[in-house]
Amino acid sequence: MVWGPALGMKQLHASGAPKEGQMRLSQRGRSRTAVGAAELTLKNVNLTFGGITVLEEVSLHVEAGQIFGLVGPNGAGKTSLFNCISGHYVPSSGSILLGDVETLGLAGDRLSLMGLARTFQHPALQLRLTVLENVVLGAHSSLPGGPLAWALRLPFTVRAERAAREEARALLERFGLGSVADSPADELSPGLHKTIELCRALISHPRVLLLDEPAAGLSHAEVEAFIASIGQVRADFDLTIVIVEHHMGLISAVTDRVLVLNNGRTLMEGTASEAQSDPRVVEAYLGREEPTDESA
């Protein structure tokens, strides 16, 4: 059983506070060699639960560094597709490539090491722990040492833990949460929980970041702030971002391309404005115009 990465690797970059635009994985010297935004390619992904087909032959390609939107009416399969990418569902067939690594068939808990991170629609934080503790959890895969090393509190674990905490604090400061880093997470608003989750995902230095309905539960002002900041986040952390979202304003404001799903199939792929003017998409969202309307 492999509990953690091999010992004796270089430590987390010890400087602690990463400079913007330089937050790379390179210094971490893990089994991970590839760094920076990665491509994401899905080929003919099928997902069935029992006899029910949830996804049928879905393919998509996200260029490295793109912000890609998954949209579609309720029940279209957006979240299912998202969960396939993140490893929470296992597709019945198809191929999912992260960079050039096939992730289908890998255990879900290996994907973090491959450079995949995600947030959840309902932020799944440990509310009794501090904000900082919640963020440091995201560094699990990049912290060295197994249970014995941590039980004995070997010096390299102590150093790694300190570095991870400093990095988490720097991340929280980057997102304006530095002052509440040591408060219990449940003292913060749901909107800020989303930010904490984002930090928890970013601390693992992902190559592809999956955001599950980042605008759900946010106030109008918070959505505006999110739209204003996401492009900078992508640039600073060198990410490919995939977003599932109902909020069409957000999707058209931030995405480079979108995939529209309906009934588990690809309806179209293109830019957000193309999608919004596509009659098939309008039909999927609003239903077919009744013939009687035409005659009227």
Binding site: S86, G87, H88, G108, D109, R110, L111, S112, L113, A117, R118, F120, A124, Q126, L129, L137, G138, H140, S141, R200, A201, S204
Partner: peptide, 15 residues
């Protein structure tokens, strides 16, 4: 802690 509270999150964290 995360295995106790949320296994889906644990998986995303590489646990």
């Amino acid at each position: 802690g995360i295995v106790r509270t949320n296994e889906a999150v644990a998986m995303s964290m590489g646990i």
